[in-house]
Design a protein around this nucleic acid. Sequence first.
DNA 1: CTGTTAGCGCTTTCAA
DNA 2: TTGAAAGCGCTAACAG
Lengths: 360, 360
Amino acid sequence: MGRDVPSLFFIGISLFFSQFCLAMSKNVTIKDIAAEAGVSIALVSFVMNNRVEADGKMKYRVNDATRERVIEVAKRLNYMPNSAARILRKGKSKVLGLIVSDISNVFYGEIARNLETLAFEQGYTMLFASSDESPEKFRQIVLSFLEKGVEGFIVVPCTGTLKVLQQVLNVGVPCVVLDRKNERFPAPMIVLDNVGAMRSAVEILLKKGLKKIEMISYTIRATSITGREEGFISRMREQGISDEQIRIHRLPFDDIDSSTDLVIPSIVGRGVEGIVFATNALAIASIRKLSSMGVRIQKDIYLVGFDNSDVYDLFYPPIPHVGQPIDKICSLAFSYLQKLIDKEIEQTTKIVYISGEVFD
Amino acid sequence: MGRDVPSLFFIGISLFFSQFCLAMSKNVTIKDIAAEAGVSIALVSFVMNNRVEADGKMKYRVNDATRERVIEVAKRLNYMPNSAARILRKGKSKVLGLIVSDISNVFYGEIARNLETLAFEQGYTMLFASSDESPEKFRQIVLSFLEKGVEGFIVVPCTGTLKVLQQVLNVGVPCVVLDRKNERFPAPMIVLDNVGAMRSAVEILLKKGLKKIEMISYTIRATSITGREEGFISRMREQGISDEQIRIHRLPFDDIDSSTDLVIPSIVGRGVEGIVFATNALAIASIRKLSSMGVRIQKDIYLVGFDNSDVYDLFYPPIPHVGQPIDKICSLAFSYLQKLIDKEIEQTTKIVYISGEVFD
DNA sequence: CTGTTAGCGCTTTCAA
DNA sequence: TTGAAAGCGCTAACAG
């Protein structure tokens, strides 16, 4: 195996910042270097790709003097390897694809941030895109990423994307799923124990002695959402609440604000004591509406948030919430993907449940 | 010119989801299609790349029947174009690179979101990475993106990156700058009128009759930050405040929380009436600390935020703030980049100032 | 309208 | 220790 990041990359860096950086001729290739150094292009390639193998030997044996000369010329000419050629030749792009529903959502932003760092450390770069929970857009993104030759996908799928993802696997590109699950899809899926997490969220309100508790959720039927609803329902039932009394308000993903304007006054009007939210975006929109109505958070009405958000700690007392350990989720997801790419494991259904973190 | 997005892409989509999707042989190439359809590879290429030109004619004239046949075979074989080969051949990757300081920051998340959408509409995909305000990391990112063959950069540079960016231009890759400026760098730079925006922010507090106003800022000397400080200072001076009385607290970018813990109590202790913030992250951290101290926002102390954030509207009355019109910034930046790529304009210094939006 | 062909820049046998 | 050469899959002249 040897090191995964070829020394080429580091040579690249030093070359690039070489003190000899002249007005550079547009595209310097190994051919130019070969000519200048008076060697063959193969030798230049050897020099650029040389590295220590697992057994401690060098991959290619190159004369020290010639190696120095080649490197010197490469620096002087400001050589930069052409990745398209390398990809074409080797079939490896060192690019991964990340698809979330909305990169501007803090939760996914943090996901992106964590994955990006991990990827960078391993010499990968990341293509990213937001699906907006639209299967059609998701499909188009997958396709364009595939055309770009990504070596692997990390995705937050939306409903109606099973077929596309199956295709991804068919063309031999590995895939890891985040935040959603589907028993019929053969991939590692890193998901929160949504049922348990929402039960914990409800528990927080129950412990305060509150009775009239309602939930605000999405209309979308992503497994993360339905799991949280299931947790809410099961815990409320255990509390002896009849099914007719258990209320879940479902708002459209793409138009939270105006639907919040309708739902919140109705909730307040009915004298609800506590609200649990399926996501941070829902909590934020609701808090905004509540504030504007003059309802005092955690006094007139108790809230419990979901996911992590700066917002929860902005109040006093802070709004309790059940968060996701994003770093753990990401490092797990990334290590699965890497093992998949390296063919150390098979692409099979494997649902990994992560416990929510209760902040109370 | 014709359409920028080749019909190939759309063909690709339908191919991919073809009902004939069999267990696919790994890599179907135009050669396979040519063999199967009994035509030459060139003809297959023509079919795949055919499009309507600007003059209304087709780029290639292909017999209808053969075109149908080729498309049918391509579908059946589940053909997917190999972008590495195309990039190698055409020197165009249809990939752009985005570098911000931290993608998990809402402001940059929204930037990413907007740009990604624009890019997608034009058939581009986006590589992204966060620099963490580290010139070294920035450099490495630029290099790896360059190796990946990006056609253009949109960057939020940090201090110490001028040289790298100059190199980018030297290798002929266009670049547009966001959120920062540097008169010596020949690129379009889309920046907020930071001085004016911060003057407006101070104005909001002044109008309320407040006198003791201080600013919380960063230690980093990015032009966006220094511009906002300049605005603060100039407006305070106009108000007749002596330079010794004008206080700006500068916190380290990578450790806001613990420094907030020190600064906020001191501010409160001195009876400061109003605080303006250089960024949303600073405002959020400070509000958190203030809340936990039991200080009532907009009652005991008045705040004015910067940038947009969900957080500002969470209070009642809402926290006034001066925001950036992100969609405008992004569409400007993107159109400049596209013109640069298409060589419609030259790569020269061009600072475009955008006015802040006052929310009061 | 269709086929032939010459590479794009690189890696990797195989020979020398 | 080095060189020659065969492609990776695709596009775009150029010929027919």
